[in-house]
């Protein structure tokens, strides 16, 4: 089809790749920052203080029950105004992704820690290990095994969620694609199909290895 040539136009693929880079960068930063937030959240959830538990519960449930797009709107149009932040679209996105990713990760951490049977703590105690030794040598290795596959899965979900950044105006791969389509509206009318097709493939190329990695890890550690 003649319209496929839109992809060969000068600047098209490079710009798309640049957009993809923004997407990846956005996701990577969000994932990276989610980790400390998630660890702290997970740890806070295992504390026995009832007030903390209630606050954390409400925060987590809210973030996980609201659609991410709604959260983006709330952050960008609402919070930035209310707290007088100079938050641009990208900042709002990172902010929301980190909070949401952190909430999901925190739940995973809590689940992983709770799934370790009490007997592990008890045998360590009987053997004379200190709390710190127990945590680093007995609990942590087991927790990581239960945590990692689902965490890699979460990273995949974050990559997909960055697509919503387009709707806030962030110039990532989808927005770039739309600009290209617009610019070539007359000379390549069917370019829409091909550009979106490429973007589709790009997301797949980024996400699929992550999914496979998660599955591989899960299988490898399933029998432990």
């Amino acid at each position: 089809m003649q319209s496929a040539n839109i992809l060969l136009q000068p600047g098209v693929m490079p710009r798309l790749l640049q957009g993809l880079w923004v997407t990846i960068w956005l996701a990577a930063v969000s994932v990276a920052l989610s980790v400390p937030v998630g660890l702290v959240t997970g740890w806070l959830m295992t504390l026995r203080n009832p007030v903390i538990r209630v606050i954390m519960r409400i925060y987590l449930d809210f973030i996980r029950i609201m659609p991410q797009l709604a959260l983006l709107f709330i952050a960008f149009y609402g919070l930035a105004r209310a707290w007088d932040w100079n938050l641009d679209a990208t900042g709002a996105c990172v902010f929301v992704f980190v909070l949401w990713g952190g909430a999901e990760l925190g739940d995973l951490v809590r689940g992983a820690l709770e799934s370790i049977p009490a007997i592990q703590y008890e045998s360590s105690y009987m053997l004379g290990l200190s709390n710190w030794q127990t945590f680093t040598h007995v609990i942590l290795p087991q927790a990581v095994r239960r945590l990692l596959p689902a965490s890699v899965n979460l990273a995949t979900r974050i990559v997909k969620t960055t697509s919503l950044a387009t709707l806030l105006g962030v110039v990532e791969v989808i927005k770039v694609g739309q600009q290209i389509i617009d610019a070539h509206r007359f000379d390549y009318p069917a370019g829409t199909l091909w550009v979106y097709g490429v973007i589709f493939a790009m997301y797949f190329v980024v996400c699929w290895p992550l999914s496979m990695a998660a599955r591989y890890l899960e299988k490898r550690w399933a029998n432990e």
């Binding site: 995949t156 997909k160 697509s163 709707l167 829409t192 199909l193 979106y196 097709g197 589709f200 997301y203």
Partner: peptide
């Protein structure tokens, strides 16, 4: 499972 819904929708609706 490895592509976002938004892209799928754009593909269906515009493509």
């Amino acid at each position: 499972r490895n592509t976002p819904l938004l892209v799928q929708l754009y593909f269906l609706y515009f493509g």
